[in-house]
Design a protein around this nucleic acid. Structure first.
Lengths: 91, 91
DNA sequence: TTAGACTTGACAAATTTTGTCAAACTTATA
DNA sequence: TATAAGTTTGACAAAATTTGTCAAGTCTAA
């Protein structure tokens, strides 16, 4: 989800994988995997990408965090009640 | 949170740490840390505990999952909008 | 004061995640 | 078709995180 979003932004900005990877100082294969959701972006990378691709940092970080949450719950039961509990705790 | 709940259940059932630890086949120190939230329970351990302490398995697993979610978001920004995104995705 | 219950800290072991590279695949085009 | 550029894949090493173990420590009740 965040990967797909970043791929869209990258293509809109006419960056090649290796160009964006170079700016982030990571391997092209790594970025390829990240965009396809096989590996995770670091928070700092998301912030850097929002700068490079002139995107809304808050939006990207929100999607990035949603991905992390989704990853921890995706194979679980009682997801909705757990989310409700979390929200209560956060109030 | 799940640790606290389990400690309460354990004490209500008059189990010592080492007794419950023995039933779970883990180290007493480990269970001590788990009850105080320093380490995580495995899902299987929660299920086993619900059996041993005659507690509601669904309730315990829900709290356990809420803890996992909470752990991934607790130091982050944009938590509420991320949770909202996750809920949308789950619909 | 000592015995039992629990906690703490250090470190090893195990597991998970990330980084790196070469080779393979895909697509556009000469 | 052949080639080149871009991307993907898989294997494996390296790094990071989590878990397991033990000995020593604290705390409390008798």
């Amino acid at each position: 989800m965040i990967g797909q979003k970043i791929r869209e932004l990258r293509e809109e900005n006419d960056f090649l994988l290796r160009q964006l990877a170079a700016k982030l100082d990571i391997d092209t294969a790594q970025l390829s995997k990240m965009e396809r959701g096989e590996r995770f972006f670091k928070k700092e990378e998301i912030i850097e990408i929002s700068r490079i691709l002139k995107a809304d940092k808050q939006e990207l970080l929100t999607i990035w965090l949603a991905d992390k949450i989704y990853k921890t719950i995706k194979d679980e039961e009682y997801v909705f009640s757990a989310l409700k509990l979390v929200e209560q705790k956060l109030q």
